[in-house]
Amino acid sequence: MKHFLIRLATPIILVILWQLLADAFGSPRMPRPSAVVASATKLIGSGDLITALATSLGRVFFGFMLACAIAIPLGILMGSARAVERNLDPLVESFRPVAAIAILPLVILWLGTGSMAAIVIVAYAAFFPILINTIAGVKRIDHNLMRAAYTMGVPPATRMWVVLLPAALPAILVGMRIGLGMAWTAIIAAELAVGAKAGGEGGIGQMMFIFYSYSVELNGIVVCMIAVGIVALVLDRILRAALHAAVPWSRL
């Protein structure tokens, strides 16, 4: 309990400072903790915030799954076959620095502004960290483990499943954890950018956009920001716990 209070000390002090400074120097429209709490109560009470978060999380889930489905097998292939890696590496490295938000215009033109576009953006954002970590994980595995299975007469395809994959799994899971963080960041940006046209599609990013461009509701925007942060934290904690549960042998 004491430990818990110490951890909360810094946020509490910051909130008090925020309130004091806003009261002393701020304009009436400046967001302040009291108004944010009121706004949050309203948004949670109406169910709008939860609906928006659920919509965004759903898109992240499908996009993330899509990214895993492509990046993990491709990463294993690139990590184990030098020729494939040499061929694809320049392509990967030239797309990697292109932020997910930068492919948005193209995605909107092709897929419109609905959930499909958002899922593709998310998949793109999550793809690279998962791919890069999978490649590294496969390349770094102890060569003798593969040789040990080889000398035991284990056939090549089986070796892939029972040695290569589990040996690379800790690295793949690290990539997934980073990828999920990127996915969550990307969905907010994508929904913000398509917010004006997204009609009834919802999502937390779009909610922020509406607060920004229609009602100029600063407290609502802050509520959304806090919600986004909390969800990111929870997602990361869940994946970290899953990682420990899935690879108990690994000292990550």
Binding site: D142, N144, L145, R147, A148, T151, M152, V163, P166, A167, L169, V247, W249, S250
Partner: peptide, 13 residues
């Protein structure tokens, strides 16, 4: 022909 490697090559998982 079974092999025992110097670093044992045990599967950590």
């Amino acid at each position: 022909r079974g092999v025992m490697f110097q670093d044992y090559a045990l599967f950590p998982w």
